[in-house]
Design a protein around this nucleic acid. Sequence first.
DNA 1: ATGAAAGCGCTAACAG
DNA 2: CTGTTAGCGCTTTCAT
Lengths: 332, 332
Amino acid sequence: MAGVSEATVSRVFSEQDAVKEHTKQKVLAAAKSLNYYPNVMAKNFAKRKSGNIGVILPYLPKVKLFSVYYFSEILNGIGEAIEKEGYDMLLLFQRVGQPYDYKKYFLSHKIDAAIILGAKDSPEERDSLRELRDADFPFCLVNQHFDGEQFCEIDAEHVAGSYAAVTHLIEQGCQNIAFLNGPLAYSNSLDRLKGYQKALQDHGLSGQEQAVFYGQYSLTSGYKVADDLLSGQLYDGIAVANDRMAIGLMQRMKELGIKPGADIAVVGYDDSDASAMCDPALSSVHVPFFEMGKRSVQRLVNQLAAPHMKLFQEKLETRLLIRESSQRNQVK
Amino acid sequence: MAGVSEATVSRVFSEQDAVKEHTKQKVLAAAKSLNYYPNVMAKNFAKRKSGNIGVILPYLPKVKLFSVYYFSEILNGIGEAIEKEGYDMLLLFQRVGQPYDYKKYFLSHKIDAAIILGAKDSPEERDSLRELRDADFPFCLVNQHFDGEQFCEIDAEHVAGSYAAVTHLIEQGCQNIAFLNGPLAYSNSLDRLKGYQKALQDHGLSGQEQAVFYGQYSLTSGYKVADDLLSGQLYDGIAVANDRMAIGLMQRMKELGIKPGADIAVVGYDDSDASAMCDPALSSVHVPFFEMGKRSVQRLVNQLAAPHMKLFQEKLETRLLIRESSQRNQVK
DNA sequence: ATGAAAGCGCTAACAG
DNA sequence: CTGTTAGCGCTTTCAT
């Protein structure tokens, strides 16, 4: 390899070079025999691109985010797409409580684009996101929507999803339907609340709109709110904003001798694995989290390739999944 | 900031510089006001360190790894520790079927150390890992053990765990216990098989060692193997190598009118969320996945700091978790 | 201690 | 089209 600089070697790998195939093969072979691997740090540094897509996750010590169905499904989708696109997936933890500074990841050149998961709606968050957008840093929010802002987003139709769930209860004959929601700081929760209210209204049941309870989207919170929810007025149907809370609620119901499904109908949200494993199996609203994760990567990669046409906002379909116990295993 | 080169600015950030506090503050303030962020690519390149710890996951299109309880818990632990240690977490997907080439990540300078999850025992895998070890690249296998090799590993006591599970069944009065295992390519499975056999032997039940069935660690595989498992000889207890298979199995049992827990005792493995959500709640072997993930990062970080004392092999404790329905929610 | 300069391994721009 | 060269923004080394 005398006279051939390493720099020359790496150039050979790039596709736009229309070198003679013969030469190319020779160099490639030489590279392999010399155990030469291009230094990607040097490459990225010279190109001023990190080659990473950052996935920004809220981080609370002790909260096991990867174990949350909705996160893990989105991550599955992101991982699949990133792998295919040839980028690397850098996980970044945004400590909850710490001041938001998304732009630091871009300015320090850690990432070329960001996918932001689990964003809450707050003035600081909005400021931080506006900063990104104004600086033209490619980013995408998944399963979140900021009303009135022009951010790139891949969301799902949560108003419709919730509407379908409540309508399902009504069609089963429920007349007095409670809604167990998650924190309203998530646009999801707000959307689902709207769906609930609209469904009641459209079916002439709006007299009881105040039957809204709140948990933290955790199993425990569903369990805990159960006593409150089941104590006063008797509901004949409960729509729950996610499956984990629904399962916690059902556990408490069973302890109290109330049969979920028979005595009080329950419908969940997310179509998580758990909704098929619990007993009775939980009808639930399916959200295409996997697809949403994939889609976000594709959009960002497009945007990196063609920095025009910057804004994209997409709302993917949800659909109610009615789960009879006999269907359980066809679901997978 | 006239006269002060950018290089100087970034030097001020490093800790070993015993600059006067006053000056330091001034430069920091100047840096902030100028919106200066050090370019980590340049830094890493100059230091010949990527700042990344790679997490290598097996990857099969369509298989949603993040949704597997055991992976997600380990990832939670890894994430927590990496965040604390100031490294970045780079997710790398090892396509199943593709030739193993772990060293490329090191040689291309993508990562400083690697955590390898879900490794199967095969000659190619062993070769690939030996290559890493011989080249002194820091890596750590989590929840996996290669017998006869000197690799860095954080494993759990799966023989003991399985032994405890089977013993639990025996203590409940079971006399004829089947074992539903996962693929033997995972050291876990082999360990659990040993625990099962040993427990039978120690309790004078070794006449039926052949009652071993195999699934793929998935819910569906547990469901499918059920007919086979329940058709011939009648077992009064079934130990299952993970919760998902156990839940699938129980679903099928219920469909067949067999009451899990009452007619045939079932015990699971992993202590996953699902084991507390299913009905009846599943007694299961708890494995400290989260801690194992954390530990692997700490070990690697130590090793990066002090490249001597390279080998570490740790086996964390497992423990049987007997879940009465009343305990369900105290578990969390 | 402080400042200047070399160099990390590539890419990109530019000559030949 | 091929080969040379100047950076990329830091760290490290070396004079001062």
